[in-house]
């Protein structure tokens, strides 16, 4: 079941890098570490990685410059930027340079892991997405905006539909609360309270109520996932 993700970490802070390398290896992923921009660039062009994790401030070549150079050479490996500059315009700058995701420091490892998993999946699947998402007997039709469970149509609010669509697109993967806030609500701030939990529990009551098989699962300390089996 576990997919091995090939990662390249470009980070100059040795202890932070050691921590991430250890954490990802413990989960069974393969991760290489480059301490500066030039090394990172060489490794990124040679090896075939699934995801690059790039610190914004690295010696010898700025993180954003590195991404720009890679994109100019049509190396489309998904890139996640780690940065201490957790500001909106910095995020915008990073994404404009060609990065795929942006995570401000300090972050929780579970958040990073979830984002990396989503990015690695994006690298593998073909860009044409199916019109109908399926998880067990739950179906979501992206075009007609219809959701059915065991053939019975479920009425969803537009936002609930978007929430479910996002969960189902990444079925089997952990989706964090911050990711939901960013992707479903386009909010880039921390709402302090458990607003997302309330939304998810509402959705869950509509999807799972009256069914033996629960599809939406809470992953403690990380977020949510939608999947058939109770792993």
């Amino acid at each position: 079941m576990l997919r091995i993700i090939k990662l390249l970490l470009i980070e100059d802070d040795a202890s932070a890098a050691a921590y991430l390398v250890k954490a990802f290896r413990e989960l069974g992923h393969s991760i290489d570490h480059a301490p500066d921009g030039i090394n990172g660039y060489t490794m990124a062009t040679d090896g075939c990685y699934d995801v690059l994790i790039v610190d914004r401030m690295i010696p010898r070549m700025d993180g954003l410059a590195l991404i720009r150079v890679l994109r100019e050479q049509s190396i489309e490996t998904p890139v996640l930027i780690l940065s201490a500059l957790g500001q909106v315009d910095d995020r915008a700058k990073g994404l404009r340079a060609g990065a795929d995701d942006y995570l401000p420091k300090p972050y929780a490892f579970s958040e990073l892991l979830a984002r990396v998993e989503i990015l690695s999946r994006r690298a593998r699947v073909t860009p044409t997405e199916e019109i109908i998402f399926r998880v067990a007997d739950l179906e979501l039709d992206r075009l007609s905006h219809r959701v059915t469970r065991a053939g019975v149509e479920i009425e969803l609010q537009p936002r609930e539909f978007r929430l479910l669509k996002y969960l189902m697109r990444h079925s089997g993967q952990v989706v964090t609360r911050t990711m939901l806030l960013e992707q479903v609500w386009d909010c880039h701030f921390d709402p302090q309270t458990n607003v997302i939990d309330v939304h998810v529990s509402r959705l869950r009551s509509k999807i799972d109520k009256g069914h033996d098989l629960q599809l939406i699962h809470t992953i403690r300390g990380a977020g949510y996932t939608i999947r058939e089996t109770n792993r």
Binding site: R159, W185, D186, C187, P191, T193, N194, V195, V198, H199, R202
Partner: peptide, 13 residues
Amino acid sequence: HDVAELYEPLAEE
């Protein structure tokens, strides 16, 4: 409206 929509279920609860 966006923000209210985000908080509406929480308020209801």
